[in-house]
C-alpha cells in the first residue's frame, strides 16, 4: 500500500525506490532472502527491512538512498516497456482532467503504467481507474505491477484493442485519457463512457496531423473548450564557476622606458584574477517534444 499512503519503515513486500544519482534511479521489490546487486556491490534485502524510508544505505563500495515511492519517482524508475509519459505532461494531465477523490477515469493505453500510477493517486481512496492495453505482454506486466503496488482495489486493467472494440463502459467516467495512434476513432466510445452530466477528455498525440483530426472530431461530437497545448521541462545545472579576467594594459598610458614596459607586459599577461559566480545554466540536451496534449469538456449530454 506504499503508493497510496505513507509508511515510516520498509517492510517485506514493499516496492522501494533506490536513488543513486539524478540519472540513476531504480525500483526494488523487497523480498526477504533475496540479494540486490548494485554497481557498488551486493546488499541483502533482509538488511533493508525495518530501515526508515529516506535512509542512506551503505554498500560495500558506495551508498544509495532508499526512498518511499511516489508517482514522480516511479516515473523516473519505471522499467520502460514503451515510450513513457514524464512528470511534466502527467502533472498537466491530472490537473486538466480535474481528477479528485472519487473520480472515475479511463486510460488507453496503459503502456508502461507511468501515467496510470498518477491517475490512481489522484482518485484515491474511493475513485477508480479503468485502463486498457492491447499489447499482451505490456498488459500482463502492468497488471502484475498494480498488484505489487497494492493498487488493485482502485484499478481495472483490460486487455483489449479499444480502437476497434471501444471501452464498453456506459456513463461511468468523469474523465478519459487517450494515448492512441488514431484517437478520433475512440471519441464516440469515450463520449458514451463519460457520465451524463459530462466530463473532461485528454488526448496525447506526438504528431500535429493526429491533433488536427482529433480536434475536428471532438468539435463534431459536441465537445467544448477544446484546447491544445504543449509543455516541456527545462532543467538547470547549478554550478559555481568563474571567468578569468583578461589583462587590459591600462597601466601605461604615458610613455615609459622600453625595458620596464616589456617587464610589465610579461607580468600582466599571466594575471590570474577571476570573476566568480553561481550560475543556473540550462542543461544543453533537453527533450524537445513529447507530444501535444488536447483537452476538452463535455457538458451534460
Amino acid at each position: 500500500m506504499s503508493f497510496s499512503s505513507y509508511k515510516p519503515n520498509i517492510e517485506n513486500g514493499d516496492v522501494a525506490i533506490l536513488y543513486f544519482s539524478p540519472l540513476n534511479i531504480t525500483q526494488l521489490k523487497i523480498r526477504h532472502g533475496q540479494t540486490l546487486q548494485t554497481s557498488y556491490g551486493a546488499v541483502k534485502h533482509a538488511d533493508l527491512i525495518g530501515v526508515k524510508y529516506g535512509s542512506k544505505v551503505n554498500c560495500p563500495k558506495g551508498f544509495f538512498h532508499i526512498l518511499h515511492p511516489t508517482s514522480e519517482l516511479w516515473t523516473q524508475a519505471v522499467p520502460h516497456r514503451t515510450q513513457i509519459l514524464y512528470s511534466t505532461d502527467i502533472s498537466m494531465i491530472t490537473f486538466q482532467l480535474e481528477l479528485t477523490a472519487g473520480s472515475v477515469v479511463i486510460e488507453a493505453g496503459t503502456g508502461s503504467g507511468s501515467l496510470s500510477h498518477a491517475l490512481i493517486r489522484s482518485v484515491l481512496p474511493t475513485g477508480h481507474l479503468y485502463t486498457f492495453e492491447f499489447h499482451k505482454e505490456r498488459y500482463e506486466k502492468a497488471a502484475k505491477e498494480f498488484e505489487d503496488h497494492g493498487l488493485t482495489e482502485n484499478v481495472t486493467i483490460t486487455h483489449r484493442d479499444v480502437l476497434n472494440d471501444g471501452f464498453q463502459l456506459e456513463h461511468v467516467a468523469d474523465a478519459v485519457f487517450l494515448d492512441l495512434p488514431s484517437p478520433w476513432s475512440c471519441i464516440d466510445s469515450a463520449k458514451q463512457a463519460l457520465k451524463l452530466k459530462g466530463g473532461r477528455i485528454c488526448s496525447f498525440s506526438p504528431c500535429i496531423e493526429q491533433v488536427s483530426q482529433t480536434c475536428a472530431t471532438l468539435a463534431e461530437k459536441g465537445f467544448q473548450d477544446i484546447k491544445t497545448l504543449e509543455c516541456l521541462l527545462r532543467k538547470f545545472h547549478v554550478k559555481h564557476t568563474g571567468m578569468p579576467k583578461a589583462c587590459l594594459g591600462e597601466l601605461t598610458e604615458v610613455e615609459k622606458a622600453h625595458q620596464a614596459k616589456v617587464e610589465a607586459r610579461k607580468s600582466q599577461a599571466t594575471s590570474q584574477e577571476s570573476y566568480e559566480y553561481v550560475t543556473a545554466g540550462p542543461v544543453h540536451d533537453m527533450q524537445g517534444h513529447t507530444g501535444f496534449l488536447t483537452f476538452a469538456s463535455l457538458y451534460s449530454h
Binding site: V211, K227, T228, L229, E230, C231, L232, R234, K235, F236
Partner: peptide, 9 residues
C-alpha cells in the same frame, strides 16, 4: 531547478 515551457496551439 526547473522551469517549464508552455505553449498553446
Amino acid at each position: 531547478i526547473t522551469e517549464t515551457w508552455y505553449r498553446e496551439y
